[in-house]
């Protein structure tokens, strides 16, 4: 794993590229919301599948809705969801991973059991099942995706923390009388930080992918919400009449995931 995705000087060239792509997308999402103020749900059936023009920069979809407004909405939705999911998963997974490695015994076994149980089902199947309980709920999707994502943090952090806890550096500090918070701050966090940050970037990509995937199989958020996967499946029938419209959500998903993958650096 590439160390120190952390602060700016440590970024490699491809990580810079990833960061630049993401910054551009975020900027677009923010500016669209701020300046354009279009309505992503207002239909105009007399102007459906219009090509990009001075009026409608990104054209319109099959209900004549502004694609610019819908893309802005969809990007904000994806970015927001990935931010929430990653923050939750990182906090939960890192915390529990450190706890498990540190306490050992019954705590660790219980947490391992929980993680293995969740891993027994492929993540997306679990998200689908949970999404089925409350269709179209953003909250449930957020909880379901976070529930899948935290396990990766838990496993990696637990494994790395175990190594640090057995290491002479921590043993030496412990023998010298230092408390747990100090041991965490000086020894454990520096060791797991690069992985946590790399996983965060990958996790953000995965959250976006998961959202788009369940949108694509039509069981995630419900129309008329503008969501990238849902937009792909809605615009699919018009690939011939309006290829530019179909290309927009596909390109957005591609750039989002590419950006996060590049930012994450090289995985193990």
């Amino acid at each position: 794993m590439k160390p120190f995705l952390a602060w700016i000087p440590g970024l490699s060239r491809s990580q810079w590229l990833g960061a630049a792509i993401l910054m551009a997308l975020i900027l677009f999402a923010l500016l669209e919301g701020w300046l354009h103020q279009g309505d992503s749900t207002r239909q105009n059936l007399s102007n459906y599948l219009a090509a990009p023009s001075a009026q409608e920069w990104f054209g319109t979809d099959h209900f004549g809705r502004s694609m610019l407004a819908r893309m802005g909405d969809a990007l904000r939705l994806s970015l927001m969801l990935s931010l929430f999911c990653v923050a939750t998963a990182a906090l939960l997974g890192t915390g529990l991973g450190v706890c498990a490695a540190w306490m050992g015994g019954i705590t660790e076994r219980l947490l391992n059991f929980l993680a293995n149980t969740l891993l027994a089902l492929p993540g997306l199947v679990l998200v689908l099942l949970l999404a089925a309980i409350a269709p179209g709920s953003f909250l449930v999707l957020y909880l379901a995706i976070s529930l899948v994502l935290w396990i990766e943090y838990y496993r990696v952090v637990r494994a790395q923390t175990q190594v640090v806890i057995r290491s002479p550096q921590l043993e030496a500090s412990r023998q010298l009388g230092f408390g747990r918070w100090y041991l965490f701050r000086r020894h454990i966090w520096p060791a797991i930080r690069p992985s946590v940050l790399t996983l965060a970037a990958f996790g953000a990509g995965n959250a976006i992918l998961a959202l788009a995937s369940i949108g694509f199989v039509y069981v995630g958020l419900q129309p008329p919400v503008a969501e990238l996967g849902l937009m792909v499946v809605e615009l699919l029938p018009y690939y011939n009449d309006a290829p530019w419209a179909l290309a927009q959500p596909i390109l957005a998903i591609f750039l989002l995931i590419l950006g996060f993958n590049l930012l994450a650096g090289k995985a193990k």
Binding site: A212, S213, F216, L255, I257, N261, L262
Partner: peptide, 11 residues
């Protein structure tokens, strides 16, 4: 491979 990995499989 980087380009393919950045696509969801349905794309």
């Amino acid at each position: 491979s980087s380009l393919l990995r950045a696509q969801p499989v349905f794309v």
